[in-house]
Design a protein around this nucleic acid. Structure first.
Lengths: 238, 238
DNA sequence: TAGTGGTCTAGACCACTCG
DNA sequence: GAGTGGTCTAGACCACTAT
């Protein structure tokens, strides 16, 4: 038996899983504290924590840094190829979505931005940082990185709305999705802070590069999702 | 300062990251044991383990259960929409691929299989379990689940080759990809065993459902990837 | 059989959140 | 100020791998 079935860890996971899946603890609800759990299960905090981290990996629970552990709501389906906006996609799934602007800055592109935008030489870019909430929970940190020259005065607009909508209405750019990547990795510090994660916790990173109708690259986007909050779902014709 | 910058954990992570990124430890190479590392850094195994798990989440290192920690090779790019076979995709990236048949069984469909195949009533299915290796490392566990009635005598074929190729050549079925899902989750026991993971470690689960040219559903596939081994990359026209 | 990671005990202090 | 998770110490035994 190489399994955890008969270990403390396995028993604790199994028990908590039962409680969650039978809805004895409901979605979004807080679990007892690690100290309480360690008394309940007559073990140490380390063992409890190992069990919680494991359930977190399954996507059953999540944590808010120094606040506690909570039962994960159902995953939302996310289609990076879809034409519809984030808010629309969530509404279609009977979820409420909200976007907050965190920070905007203009700088000379470098590093990850420069290579994603295929910048040749020095060029100004706008970086727009936003956080998206689903049913009140911060689940997605988004960094949009725009070639400034293509978007005069965009920073004066309402940036909590759909940027692709703004591209179309204000500038006449139709975005044609071209490439995106999905990478499971750890949250960088600024992302962790925005999502109430501890540094180094897992996130799903999605990088997307958008081109307009004439084929010119206009912006790139870095999304960081809480991994328990989503699944990617793509339908393809043929 | 909410960051790890000045903690033991942060320092250990930073130091190991430097060693890896500067190629002082090369890809595929084994790290010193947790006990050795805890002496080197003058700390306990628990702290070392926390640092290693965090680097594992980043995708920088990986573990083989009870064997040790290793530096991750570069991620391969994987396109679930691509028409080309797994082996072809890897060869295109100058990687060597190998597939081994783990297990084959025929059963009456139920549970996850039944719902993925949209089975109505009881029906026999073949379940084919395989492990795929990239450059000698087991990185992908695949479960194919076929409606048995559509594939007479398929179990007598060489099942380490491309199944979609077999569908086409032996049965005249052209698969038209229709839907796939990507879900970050924890490895179930049988997957963990096949990939030398510990139970509960993170994997990328990809579920795909294949239809043939007339629209009939023919099989579904459950892939479980080591998360440090891959990134999903999709190009779309339009 | 020696060595590895996996699990586990029994504590401690710290940084941070919340009321 | 009380409570939380985050970090940390100093050990231990066990299941398994490799030889």
């Amino acid at each position: 038996m190489g399994t955890q079935a008969n270990t403390q860890l396995g028993k604790i996971k199994k028990r908590l899983r039962q409680q969650i899946q039978s809805r004895l603890i409901s979605q979004g609800q807080k679990l007892p504290s690690e100290r309480e759990l360690s008394e309940l299960f007559a073990t140490t905090r380390i063992t409890i924590k190992d069990a919680l981290v494991s359930l977190e990996t399954e996507g059953l629970i999540y944590r808010e840094e120094r606040r506690g552990w909570y039962v994960s709501p159902e995953r939302v389906c996310y289609n990076p190829l879809s034409r519809s906006h984030f808010h629309q996609m969530m509404t279609d799934q009977s979820r409420t979505a909200e976007t907050r602007l965190l920070n905007v800055r203009t700088e000379v592109g470098g590093g990850e931005y420069a290579s994603a935008l295929a910048l040749q030489g020095l060029m100004q870019i706008h970086v727009i940082e936003r956080v998206r909430y689903i049913d009140g929970r911060a689940v997605l940190f988004v960094e949009n990185c725009l070639k400034a020259a293509l978007f005069p005065d965009i920073l004066a607009e309402n940036l909590t709305l759909s940027l692709t909508g703004l591209y179309r209405e204000k500038y006449g750019y139709e975005t044609q999705r071209s490439r995106f990547e999905v990478i499971p990795t750890a949250a960088p510090a600024h992302v962790a802070k925005a999502l109430n994660l501890a540094e180094g916790q897992p996130v799903m990173k999605i990088c997307r590069i958008n081109y307009k109708q004439d084929g010119e690259l206009i912006d790139c986007e870095f999304e960081y999702w809480r991994p328990d909050a989503m699944m990617i779902q793509i339908d393809s014709e043929g």
